[in-house]
Simulated scan of single mutants.
Amino acid sequence: MKKILFGLVLLVVTSTGSFAQSSEEKEVYQLSMDKWQWMAEKDVEKLTPLFHPEAKFVHMSGTWTTARELEIIETGSIWYKNAKVHDTAIKIFGNTAVVWNRITLTTYVRGSDVENEFTVTEVYQKEGADWKMLALTFSSVRDTHQIEK
């Protein structure tokens, strides 16, 4: 019985990242995960084609444009050191995708590491063969917050 229970728990734990059903959901999920890595690496060359030129970014301290977000990332005035993704939900609406990630974000801001719990809402729109991010919004939440799917 213990072996069966262990096997079921292992299956659930290892399959949490592969929830996406459609190929579009899988593609958007991977793009979202890549984005967190590129932000941690301050890789504006990879982020620039992802962010729509007129996108908006909503943070705890303000709302700004793509140009300002890329400048912040490149200069490290906010360094998104690590986004530990706990839960993700994706909904495709035609050529628009909405991603909700519940994360613990470690950033380097004003000389100190800071850790916050967020649900991040990302909005993407398909342009030709590519997805472009239109919006990224950080919502402060408790670590017990759950994304309803």
Results as ranks from 00 to 15, higher is better:
residue 9 V to E: 03
residue 94 G to Q: 10
residue 31 L to D: 07
residue 118 F to D: 01
residue 18 S to D: 06
residue 96 T to G: 01
residue 6 F to K: 14
residue 138 F to S: 12
residue 45 E to W: 05
residue 60 M to G: 09
residue 6 F to P: 01
residue 4 I to L: 15
residue 58 V to F: 13
residue 137 T to R: 00
residue 17 G to C: 12
residue 20 A to H: 06
residue 89 A to Q: 09
residue 55 A to L: 06
residue 91 K to T: 15
residue 89 A to G: 07
residue 140 S to R: 11
residue 98 V to D: 03
residue 21 Q to F: 10
residue 112 S to A: 14
residue 93 F to I: 13
residue 70 L to R: 10
residue 62 G to L: 07
residue 29 Y to T: 12
residue 135 A to G: 05
residue 141 V to C: 02
residue 5 L to H: 10
residue 31 L to P: 02
residue 47 L to S: 08
residue 39 M to H: 01
residue 15 S to G: 00
residue 6 F to A: 12
residue 48 T to L: 07
residue 104 T to M: 07
residue 112 S to D: 12
residue 69 E to S: 07
residue 17 G to W: 11
residue 145 H to W: 11
residue 50 L to T: 06
residue 83 A to K: 00
residue 55 A to T: 02
residue 107 T to C: 09
residue 132 K to M: 08
residue 55 A to I: 07
residue 57 F to Y: 14
residue 131 W to T: 06
residue 80 Y to D: 01
residue 143 D to L: 07
residue 95 N to M: 08
residue 2 K to E: 15
residue 16 T to E: 02
residue 75 T to I: 08
residue 11 L to K: 02
residue 118 F to M: 02
residue 45 E to Q: 11
residue 25 E to Q: 14
residue 125 Q to D: 05
residue 110 R to G: 04
residue 79 W to R: 15
residue 125 Q to E: 12
residue 62 G to K: 11
residue 121 T to K: 09
residue 138 F to G: 04
residue 44 V to K: 04
residue 112 S to N: 11
residue 38 W to L: 13
residue 46 K to R: 15
residue 45 E to I: 02
residue 13 V to E: 08
residue 23 S to E: 15
residue 54 E to I: 03
residue 113 D to R: 05
residue 148 E to Y: 13
residue 3 K to W: 04
residue 29 Y to R: 14
residue 59 H to W: 09
residue 73 I to G: 01
residue 30 Q to R: 14
residue 23 S to W: 01
residue 67 A to Y: 06
residue 124 Y to P: 03
residue 147 I to M: 06
residue 94 G to W: 01
residue 43 D to K: 08
residue 136 L to D: 05
residue 103 I to C: 12
residue 69 E to V: 08
residue 139 S to D: 08
residue 45 E to H: 07
residue 26 K to T: 09
residue 132 K to I: 10
residue 149 K to C: 03
residue 89 A to P: 00
residue 80 Y to C: 00
residue 124 Y to H: 12
residue 126 K to I: 06
residue 122 E to P: 01
residue 41 E to H: 08
residue 135 A to M: 13
residue 55 A to E: 08
residue 11 L to Y: 02
residue 26 K to F: 03
residue 104 T to N: 13
residue 100 W to N: 03
residue 34 D to P: 04
residue 40 A to P: 01
residue 32 S to M: 12
residue 35 K to Q: 15
residue 62 G to Y: 08
residue 28 V to S: 09
residue 37 Q to F: 05
residue 5 L to T: 14
residue 96 T to M: 09
residue 120 V to F: 02
residue 83 A to G: 11
residue 24 E to W: 03
residue 85 V to F: 07
residue 19 F to Y: 12
residue 17 G to E: 02
residue 91 K to P: 04
residue 96 T to F: 08
residue 73 I to Q: 09
residue 100 W to E: 07
residue 62 G to V: 06
residue 141 V to E: 01
residue 48 T to C: 05
residue 129 A to M: 11
residue 30 Q to E: 15
residue 16 T to R: 13
residue 110 R to N: 15
residue 133 M to D: 01
residue 124 Y to G: 00
residue 40 A to R: 00
residue 72 I to Y: 03
residue 27 E to K: 14
residue 65 T to P: 06
residue 126 K to W: 10
residue 32 S to F: 10
residue 141 V to H: 00
residue 124 Y to V: 03
residue 29 Y to N: 13
residue 126 K to C: 08
